[in-house]
Design a protein around this nucleic acid. Structure first.
Lengths: 217, 217
DNA sequence: CGGTCACGATACAGAAACGTATCAGATACA
DNA sequence: TGTATCTGATACGTTTCTGTATCGTGACCG
């Protein structure tokens, strides 16, 4: 949104120094992840993030305009990286043929495995987005990107077992909802293996209900 | 947890004045809901809540030990009320016979309709609980209570259409996961009717996958 | 109806955080 | 290497919040 340290002259000019700046910016982003996961977004202060990153507030205000901006930037960067990694993993997985639906689901679950710290960030971001109208579009876009990433893999995998997706959009939305909903349970449930087991079962159920036998297979 | 305003004498004595105290306490609880929904739990201050409720901090510290305590008390009170209302609505609904699975789902969805403001509180609480170990048990208990409340209704309703639940625990967990996951989508999605439509479809899918035709029917 | 004590308002001191203005040192480029 | 520019540290004033201590008022009870 708002970029920190606007150009002094009325004419926009590209910054001259880049390397050092990029590094501090990145360290602040990394520190933000840790601090927000531990303290929560609302309870974290600019000072907290700076201390964790090993800087003072001068560095912060030189790179970001507000905590909100830092949070959004961090979330987008990490989401980007996760989606990229997931895409590669799925592509790699798609090359190996799968034997059964369960087999495909298991591989899929390996890719979207629940990461404790990151899911706390997701929860913080969800809460934050729900009361920040401007962020709803960002969340909706995330869902669309996930759909675009996951659907091709799943459709190919499903083709191997003779099934095809009925309603692609609805299927993708259902997967995201089930992922988010079960992730919380996996973190809260005292009996973690049980929660993961149920997660798997639910994914399987969704896949079965949103697909049908492919007559062309 | 910690109770505010411990008795001065070593011998516990029941408070003499009750009515006024109960009223201010309730107003603080109500104000907390509004403030936390708007500002977020982490960004809200004791002062914010007091101002909204029409009191000063003196009243607050006389009734609660911390914002955390207030948040938990408010959440538990509202959850209690919601569960009670849902229970009554379900009981009432169960008396009318249902014609089809879709019919039953629709009635069920009327009861668990997504309330914008309340779901923001849920999101705040989820994020808060994920980084507060002591609250995980509270969330797990909530799930158990929901299961105990919803399952009897659903089983009776399913009986009417000749189906029975296979794995009750897993079924209940799946319903909670789907509810939570789709609720966010309903609030974020620009096309709200579509999101609700998908929500309905997903619930239906879960019911179908976690039940089977009842041979005794 | 009068006495008593609980309740919440007020005042206070300290801490924490914010955002800015300034400056010394680092960095890129000629 | 010189120098213009950028970058992050430092210092500062302000605001906001916290928690406690104290006190007046009003509600309850005999």
């Amino acid at each position: 949104m708002t970029e920190a340290r606007q150009p002094q002259s009325s004419i926009a000019r590209p910054p001259r120094v880049t390397k050092r700046r990029a590094e501090t910016r990145q360290r602040l982003l990394d520190a933000a992840l840790e601090v927000f996961a531990e303290e929560g977004f609302g309870r974290a202060s600019v000072e907290d993030v700076c201390t964790r990153a090993g800087y003072t507030r001068g560095a912060f205000y030189s790179n970001f305009a507000s905590l909100d901006e830092l949070f959004l930037a961090m979330w987008e960067q990490r989401t980007e990286a996760l989606l990229r990694a997931a895409g590669e993993a799925l592509n790699e997985a798609a090359h190996r043929p799968i034997r059964s639906l369960e087999d495909g689901i298991d591989r899929f679950l390996e890719v979207v495995a629940v990461d404790d710290r990151w899911y706390r960030i997701e929860a913080e971001f969800t809460a934050h987005a729900l009361r920040t109208p401007g962020l709803r579009g960002v969340m909706a876009e995330r869902e669309a990107r996930i759909a675009g990433l996951v659907l091709p893999y799943l459709e190919r995998a499903l083709g191997h077992v003779g099934r095809r997706v009925v309603d692609r959009e609805a299927f993708a939305a259902a997967l995201v909802a089930v992922h988010d909903g079960t992730a919380v349970q996996c973190l809260v449930e005292p009996d973690a293996p049980l929660a993961h087991q149920r997660r798997r079962t639910l994914f399987l159920a969704v896949v079965e209900c949103y697909t049908e036998a492919d007559p062309d297979a």
